[in-house]
Design a protein around this nucleic acid. Structure first.
Lengths: 181, 181
DNA sequence: GATAAACACAACATCAATGTTGCAGTACAT
DNA sequence: ATGTACTGCAACATTGATGTTGTGTTTATC
């Protein structure tokens, strides 16, 4: 039953991520129930609650890393890379709606990966700045924070908007704002 | 010692809010320790953990409501009201860094107040839209979400930026974005 | 059909958090 | 000085979450 096993494993991870997102103290029993498996089954796969969390983190980090790679942040033209990044990262944020910045604090390995990915994105924003795509009076760190905030917002407060349109909205709000002139 | 009592009470609320913000499952013991009082002292003031949470929510809602009132969202010119709102709400968000949308789910009374305040802000954004301060092709709900996201971002990721400057940054990013035309 | 893996279920021990109570000490007001 | 209000400390019972183990059952694979 390796197929079933793999299916249930990822099912637990996805369901766990969803539950943990809305309640970071969700019990293993609640996660197991939501995933439709017995509590002991979860414990057989993940020795600790901590191990389960690490697995969820890793799954999210894997997805995010793939997006960063495929966006070609250092090579592609800034507008192209930006849009590709957004269209990829928004579904990832939706599928793994964890507040990684907070939850990975106690997992040094995951936190290191997260920071490495964060640095890649920051470098991209800096490049956008250097190439004149961002206003000269804007701090790159602030621009980066704005981008993150917009992604989170469209991903979780507007789950019905599909990824391409969501990417358009974010890119537009990011670069032009919402004001009339 | 009524003065001391009041001081310790608010101290517990503020410290509790801070701890609960970074870890929503922070124990009463941890909150008491961080506030510098005994665990039983907290229990004497707040019968339940739930009661403590309600008190924290109420404190944040009170502060936010004062900001909404003083911003004169329905009367003052849009740019003035916007800036006044931002300069007021950013310190509130910093002092009570709770994710209210998530944490108030189980407190119907607090949630109703939160939604009422949310509606006031949405109405303001709608007014800004109607009066031509926002682009006509922008959905008011999206503009509203962008505003919230920017406030949270500057409040928590840039705690060193003082309120007036933070309000400037948010208003600027909100209306103009960060892109170079 | 035999085998092996994965499962649900039940039962158990353990631990951390919660909430309560009694007691002694301390600051303050009258 | 005396009563009142508050506190810290210790001890306790209770509960919910955690993690483990054993048994029987299902199911794919050989």
């Amino acid at each position: 039953m390796r197929a079933d096993a793999a299916r249930n494993l990822t099912s637990v991870l996805r369901t766990g991520a969803r539950l943990l997102a809305e309640d970071p103290s969700a019990s293993m029993a609640a996660i197991a129930a939501a995933a439709g498996v017995d509590r002991t089954t979860v414990h057989r796969r993940f020795a600790n609650r901590e191990t389960l969390l690490r697995a969820v983190f890793q799954a999210k980090l894997d997805s995010a890393e793939r997006v960063l790679d495929e966006a070609r942040l250092t090579e592609a033209p800034v507008p192209v890379a930006l849009h590709r990044y957004l269209e990829g990262i928004i579904p990832v944020s939706r599928e793994w709606p964890l507040d990684t910045r907070r939850m990975m604090q106690k997992d040094p390995e995951a936190n290191a990966r997260r920071e490495a990915q964060s640095a890649r994105l920051s470098a991209f924003v800096q490049r956008a700045c250097d190439e004149g795509y961002l206003r000269a009076d804007i701090d790159a760190a602030w621009a980066r924070a704005v981008l993150d905030a917009l992604v989170d917002s469209i991903a979780h407060r507007f789950p019905a908007v599909d990824a391409p349109q969501a990417a358009d909205l974010v890119a537009d709000a990011f670069l032009r704002g919402v004001g009339a002139v």
